[in-house]
Design a protein around this nucleic acid. Structure first.
Length: 805
RNA sequence: GGGCGUGUAGCUCAGCGGGAGAGCGCCCGCUUCACACGCGGGAGGUCACUGGUUCGAUCCCAGUCACGCCCACCA
């Protein structure tokens, strides 16, 4: 064992060994209590980012802890086909090759995606392995596997037969680049500098007067079907019920009153364009207005735009404004900064369009999930996210589940020439309405999250009644980031309850978002991302895991290299104290024989540390857990215990040797869930190893007595000696420990500062005396607080006496 | 605009009703036979601000300011 612990090579060797020896594997039917984590499937084209690394560190620590406690742990993994994300990546790839999706056509495109996945996909599992994630990689699954597809089809047909899937024309978010609908959750918003244009719409019967509206999108004027004003708006009271003429198209439309109009904005009058604006769509439906569409699926003016057909919106806008200006209807145009919706993948400006889409009705489907959340049968951590999850589900609108992409699960919907739809899991022989055999399958695909919703049980083989499904559903735990709650977590809960009648997991941990060093969000496009593999390469997986977990305290936290360096130092410290023990135990075998004071003290301290650790792990407070491990190792084990026993080890004290080995074993076990590699490596150097640490039993507490009262005077003496150069009186055994740890022969050169120490103690004494002299404090404060203050006062007085001043 | 969260030592963060803490950085001293990725000592904080509750507030309450993340159809 070298003086400096070098993780490279060591970590990879253990990762291979654990996996090859089958220690990551889970088997159904072992009869043991289960701990099941269906880990979130990363995008098949993805690379490891800090979020993944944090999530893995968190889940793996809990999995390893439970494995050591004897649970049958199933840590399951795989990939998501990630519809739009993958399609977008492959499209970019094609453009790079001088071609395009349109050029190769759908059939070829899908083939290319599969080829591309075989070539570039799948690297992330190697990265999970490199972090030490103890997943059962043999059971890796993909959301486009044949079996998984079957589950998705079953889910669709199930909902359809219940009447919860329907088709409707509604205004939706349309990405003109991908030419697909998108859910609200797939958008990003961005501030843009735009213009707000005020235009007078003349009254039909009084052209010299009219209603002035404000619009940010003059190109949509061609689809205007009304003007709306606030119901109580005095300025426009007389206009309501009259008719105005829409410029350019010269269409006569009504002026209606609607409470959706904000009188504070612009002129308080709104042009109503149900075909191209979500709010106008609502107003239109409320007033039974026609729905015109002048923009096509490519974002250009369509054939309904007459002479402007085929123009871009900008060109059309220019022509329309020219017409309006010529007729003196342009009131003003002012700079306007507002936020617009973009496709999160390609950043194209979202076009609200009316479109025939498939929807999943949520009102009944979500009820069992809401009940499960309200009753805390499924519990989000932290509590604030639990409330958010419930709110989100309560307010969940019907879900647009169809996408007009090329990559995804094709809808199990077949159409005959008469337009009848047949919905079945596999291709039907004939139309269920008319018996026609000329069936064409819908070209639309499902929202990726429609299939992700089945993850916890589809990967176990559902709808087959497999041993895995039997053993591991419901699962235990899921971990994710905040923004995934609505997209995925809630949907797994309602799909599991609907299809299997049981919750998919008991707990969802919403983990910290790690921000860049400067406090901004980590993102590739901002260049603020930090590659966890680089951290692993530089500091090791153990240090990276430790550092990331240390950072998981509050909701958002800034990345800092310091936390990971602390992890590296902890690994090195552990390595070295193990060297000390192993080099000096002769042929001793591990056994707890805590007779000497420092041994009874360490047993007591480790019992306490273990209890705290277990409590923090149970509460998913991994940051607190790292803190306990750090102090138990550095302060208790190394600084005090190891120093105290060193002379006894050198002297060949058999009790000290056997106990030191036992204590080291125990410390390794406590650290293993967070730092698996260095602990396993040291473990393999202990005498008589028959099992791997990864599957070694979690330690039982020694049940040591509280020896604080006996040990504390040594610590106080050390402090006084180091600061003031004065040696307080101690008992014989206390003195032995003091001499071993403090090494008084190496007294400080300046002899210490007695006066400064005395000063500090006098101040403490004055403070304590002041408090105890305050009658209201003695009367009102809890008895133990007053008592503690008295004890402190006496201790300070003793210490001051010991200084001899 | 709404929700959640955060403002504590130069930096990253613990603490959350009774003595201001850790790691890193900085200064001083130590190559002491596990470790210089170490050991010992030290400097450095009106605990964002203003009120309130309390014998006592960094901690609880109200408000203000600043920042972050998520969400949102103001044309």
């Amino acid at each position: 064992m070298e003086p400096l612990y070098k993780p490279e090579g060591v970590e990879e060797r253990w990762q291979r060994t654990w996996e090859e020896e089958g220690l990551y594997g889970a088997e159904p039917g072992s009869g043991r209590e289960t701990f099941v984590v269906a880990h979130p499937p990363p995008n098949v084209t993805g690379a490891l980012h800090t979020g993944h690394a944090l999530q893995i560190s968190l889940a793996d620590a809990l999995v390893r802890w439970h494995r050591m406690r004897g649970f049958e742990t199933a840590f399951l993994t795989g990939y998501d086909h990630a519809g739009i994300s993958t399609q977008n990546a492959v499209e970019k790839h094609l453009v790079g090759q001088g071609t395009s999706r349109e050029e190769v056509g759908r059939e070829r495109f899908v083939e290319i995606v599969w080829d591309w996945l075989r070539q570039y996909g799948g690297t992330i599992m190697g990265q999970f392995r490199r972090l030490g994630a103890s997943m059962d990689y043999r059971r890796e699954r993909f959301t486009m596997d044949d079996l998984y597809v079957r589950a998705v089809m079953r889910w669709f047909v199930h909902l359809y037969e219940k009447g919860w899937i329907y088709r409707a024309n509604r205004i939706i978010n349309w990405c003109p680049h991908h030419e697909t609908s998108l859910s609200d959750l797939e958008l990003v918003h961005e501030e843009v500098d735009d213009a707000l244009t005020y235009i007078r719409y003349p009254f039909a019967d009084e052209p010299e007067n009219g209603v002035t509206i404000a619009t940010a999108r003059p190109a949509t004027i061609l689809a205007d079907v009304a003007v709306a004003v606030g119901p109580g708006d005095e300025r426009w009271r007389d206009a309501v019920g009259r008719e105005v003429v829409v410029p350019f198209v010269e269409r006569v439309v009504p002026v209606v009153a609607d409470e959706r109009v904000d009188p504070e904005f612009g002129t308080g009058a709104l042009k109503v364009t149900p075909g191209h604006d979500p709010m106008d769509f609502e107003i239109g439906r409320a007033h039974e207005l026609p729905e015109l569409t002048v923009i096509g699926s490519d974002g250009r003016m369509n054939e309904q735009a007459g002479e402007l057909s085929g123009l871009t919106q900008d060109d059309a806008e220019e022509r329309i404004l020219e017409w309006i200006r010529d007729r003196g209807l342009l009131v003003k145009r002012e700079a306007y900064r507002h936020s617009v919706a973009l496709c999160e993948r390609c950043k194209s400006r979202i076009e609200p369009l009316i479109s025939l889409q498939w929807w999943c009705r949520m009102d009944e489907l979500k009820q069992p999930a809401l009940a499960a959340l309200r009753e805390c049968r499924v519990r989000y951590h932290p509590e604030s996210q639990h409330r958010f999850a419930i709110d989100s589900l309560e307010n969940a609108p019907d879900w647009n589940i169809s996408r007009q992409l090329w990559w995804g699960h094709q809808l199990p919907v077949w159409e005959c020439p008469d337009g009848h739809l047949t919905v079945e899991e596999t291709e039907p022989d004939a139309c269920t309405d008319c018996g026609s055999t000329e069936l064409t399958r819908s070209e639309e695909v499902l929202d990726t999250w429609f299939s992700s919703a089945l993850w916890p049980f589809a990967i176990l083989g559902w709808p087959e009644q497999t041993p895995e499904l039997e053993a591991w559903y419901p699962g235990t735990l899921n971990t994710t980031a905040r923004e995934i709650i609505r997209l995925w977590e809630n949907r797994m809960i309602f799909s599991g309850l609907e299809l299997l009648g049981e919750i998919p997991f008991e707990t969802v941990i919403i983990h910290t978002t790690v921000l860049a060093r400067d406090g901004r969000r980590m993102s590739k496009s901002l260049g603020t991302g930090i590659d966890p593999l680089e951290l692993v390469a530089e500091h090791g997986a153990d240090a990276t895991r430790y550092g990331l977990l240390k950072l998981t305290s509050s909701q958002d936290v800034r990345f800092s290299e310091g936390a990971i360096e602390e992890g590296r130092k902890l690994a090195n410290k552990l390595w070295n104290v193990a060297r000390l023990v192993l080099a000096n135990v002769g042929d001793a075998r591990p056994e707890q024989r805590p007779r000497a004071l420092e041994e009874r003290w360490l047993a007591w301290r480790l019992d306490r540390a273990q209890a705290e650790l277990e409590q923090h792990l149970s509460a998913f407070e991994l940051s607190q857990a790292t803190s306990v491990l750090y102090h138990a190792t550095f302060d208790d084990f190394c600084d005090w215990y190891a120093e105290a026993i060193k002379p006894r080890l050198y002297d060949g004290d058999e009790d000290a040797r056997a106990t030191a080995l036992a204590n080291l074993e125990r410390l390794l076990k406590l650290l293993h869930p967070v730092m698996p590699h260095v602990t396993e490596e040291i473990w393999s150097n202990l005498p008589d190893r028959k099992t791997r640490l990864i599957v070694a039993p979690w330690p039982e507490p020694v049940g040591a007595e509280d020896v604080g009262e006996e040990f504390e005077p040594i610590r106080t003496a050390a402090e006084v000696f180091r600061r003031a150069g004065v040696r307080p009186q101690l008992g014989e055994e206390q003195q032995r420990i003091f001499d071993a740890v403090v090494k008084p022969d190496r007294a400080r050169a300046d002899g210490g500062n007695v006066e400064a120490e005395a000063e500090r103690l006098r101040a403490e004494i004055a403070r304590a005396e002041g408090m105890l002299a305050n009658e209201r404090f003695v009367q009102n404060a809890p008895g133990e607080v007053v008592e503690a203050e008295r004890e402190k006062l006496e201790r300070y007085r003793r210490e001051l006496d010991a200084l001899g001043v």
